[in-house]
C-alpha cells in the first residue's frame, strides 16, 4: 500500500516537473529546431516540432554571409582574456584576505561588493570619453579591461570563500618546514586551491561572454563580440527566423555546455559565498 502510494506521488511529481521544465526550456529548443528549418517553414502558421525537412542551409548562410567567426573570436578573446587577467589580480587579494585577516578584511569585502552596485550608467560618459581619447573604442583590449574590472569583485569574493576552506594548519606546517611565502603560495596553496580557481575562471568566462551593456556600447564592427553581433539582427534581418536561430544557436550552445558543468560554482559565485 505505502509503496504504491509513494510511487504514485513520484509519478505525479515527475510528470509535473517534466512539464514545467519542458515549458521553461521550450524557447531554446524551439530556436535550435528552427535553425534547421527553411525560412518558409520557420514562419509557417502550422509549425511542426520535428517533422520538417532538416537543412543546414541557415548555418552555411550565416557563416558565409556574415563575419561570424570574427565575432566569435572576439567573444573568446574578451571572455577568456578578462577572466585570466582578473584571476591574476584577484588571487593575491583573496589569498591575503583569507589568510592574513585583519579588522578591516570584512569591511573591505563589503566595499568590493558595493562596487558591483554602482550602476554602469553612472560611469557611462566618462568611460566612453576616456575610451575615445585613448583610442580604446571598438578594441578588444578596451573590453578586456572593462570586463576584468566589472567581474573583479565577484572573483575576489569567490576565491576568498574557496581559500577560507583550506585549513591553515597546512600552511603553518609548510612554514615550519621553512617555506617562504612565495613557495607557500605556489607549492602548497595553488595546488589545493586549483579546483576553486578553475570554477572561478569558468563562471567568469560565462558572465563575460553574456555581458550585454558595455559590449553593446563600446564596440562597433571590429571588436563586437557575439552579444553585439546578434543585436544587429534586431531589424530587419530578424524577420529571417531561421537565420536568426542559426546565429543564436551558435552563440549560446558553447556557453550552455560550459554552464551545465558549472551549476554548483554558479550558486557560490553569484551569491558571494552566502549559499554553498
Amino acid at each position: 500500500m505505502a509503496i504504491t502510494s509513494s510511487h504514485k506521488s513520484k509519478l505525479i511529481y515527475t510528470v509535473l516537473a517534466w512539464t514545467i521544465s519542458g515549458l521553461i526550456f521550450f524557447p531554446i529548443l524551439w530556436t535550435l529546431l528552427t535553425s534547421f528549418k527553411t525560412e518558409a517553414e520557420a514562419i509557417s502558421a502550422s509549425p511542426s516540432l520535428f517533422m520538417f525537412d532538416w537543412t543546414l542551409e541557415n548555418y552555411r548562410d550565416v557563416l558565409e554571409r556574415s563575419p561570424y567567426f570574427t565575432h566569435f573570436w572576439n567573444s573568446v578573446v574578451i571572455s577568456i582574456g578578462s577572466s585570466l587577467l582578473g584571476l591574476l589580480i584577484a588571487i593575491p587579494a583573496a589569498w591575503s584576505m583569507a589568510f592574513v585577516q585583519t579588522k578591516r578584511t570584512k569591511n573591505l569585502l563589503m566595499w568590493m561588493l558595493s562596487t558591483k552596485m554602482l550602476p554602469p550608467v553612472g560611469v557611462l560618459i566618462p568611460i566612453y570619453l576616456l575610451f575615445r581619447d585613448f583610442g580604446l573604442l571598438d578594441t578588444k583590449l578596451g573590453l578586456v579591461i572593462v570586463m576584468t574590472l566589472i567581474n573583479l569583485p565577484i572573483m575576489v569574493w569567490m576565491l576568498y570563500t574557496y581559500f577560507r576552506e583550506i585549513p591553515s594548519e597546512i600552511l603553518e606546517a609548510s612554514r615550519m618546514d621553512g617555506a617562504t611565502i612565495i613557495e607557500e603560495v605556489f607549492h602548497v596553496l595553488l595546488p589545493i586551491a586549483l579546483p576553486g580557481i578553475a570554477s572561478t575562471l569558468l563562471l567568469n568566462v560565462i558572465l563575460a561572454w553574456n555581458e550585454a551593456f558595455w559590449t553593446l556600447i563600446l564596440t562597433a564592427a571590429n571588436a563586437a563580440p557575439l552579444t553585439a553581433f546578434i543585436a544587429s539582427y534586431s531589424s530587419p534581418e530578424g524577420l529571417f527566423y531561421a537565420k536568426l536561430s542559426a546565429a543564436s544557436a551558435m552563440a549560446i550552445v558553447p556557453i550552455l555546455i560550459l554552464g551545465w558543468f558549472s551549476q554548483k560554482q554558479l550558486v557560490r559565485g553569484l551569491s558571494f559565498g552566502a549559499v554553498k
Partner: peptide
C-alpha cells in the same frame, strides 16, 4: 530549468 540563465540577453530578447 537552468538553461535560460546561460542564454545571452540579446539572444533571449530577440527569440
Amino acid at each position: 530549468v537552468l538553461a535560460p540563465f546561460f542564454v545571452m540577453p540579446t539572444v533571449s530578447a530577440l527569440v
